[in-house]
């Protein structure tokens, strides 16, 4: 914090990374490894809408019931950027991309290499880093 705050009361935001208390992890989950790896979430039993999160009450598109689903770890980049500022515990530079999983939802991933990739680039989620999905350009 700046010198301005010295000697005065301070406020805190949620999140252990910024000095607050831990919260339940809201991020998409990668389950399994290698050929069995999948992003787990929910899919509508009526319209097949895929959701990269758990415990939603019904399909937000058609109100149908949802069931657990395993999504491909591959897909195409919708867009990407390289962040050049520190964010929470993340040190720059680090790259982020929206990845449209094959027959699955759009998820935010970290890229293994800190570089922008062309839209439409095929990516594969290869693991996690401190709970964040990590993807690389598919060979």
């Amino acid at each position: 914090m700046s010198e301005l705050g010295v000697g005065r009361p301070t406020k805190r935001r949620p999140g252990a990374a910024v000095g607050g208390l831990p919260v339940a992890d809201p991020r998409p989950v990668l389950d399994g490894a290698g050929a069995d790896a999948a992003v787990v979430g929910l899919r509508c039993t009526q319209c097949r809408y895929p959701v990269p999160q758990r415990r939603i009450p019904w399909c937000p598109v058609c109100y149908g019931s949802v069931a657990e689903a395993r999504f491909a770890t591959t897909g195409i980049a919708w867009s990407s950027t390289v962040v050049q500022i520190a964010v929470g515990g993340r040190k720059p530079p680090f790259a982020l991309a929206y990845l449209d999983l094959d027959d699955g939802p759009r998820v935010l991933v970290h890229l293994a290499e800190p570089a922008v990739v062309p839209i439409g680039t095929r990516l594969r989620i290869t693991g996690t880093d401190d709970g964040d999905l990590v993807a690389e350009v598919a060979a």
């Binding site: 935001r13 949620p14 990374a17 607050g20 962040v83 964010v87 839209i119």
Partner: peptide, 30 residues
């Protein structure tokens, strides 16, 4: 905040360290 807004820890993308300029940067790249 002493700089950019710290992303909301209870949000799936905030928890993955997507800052607001990063969200807009993704749109700009697209």
């Amino acid at each position: 905040f002493s700089g950019a807004i710290v992303p909301e820890a209870t949000d799936p993308e905030g928890a993955s360290s997507l800052p607001l300029p990063g969200l807009y940067a993704l749109q700009a790249q697209r």
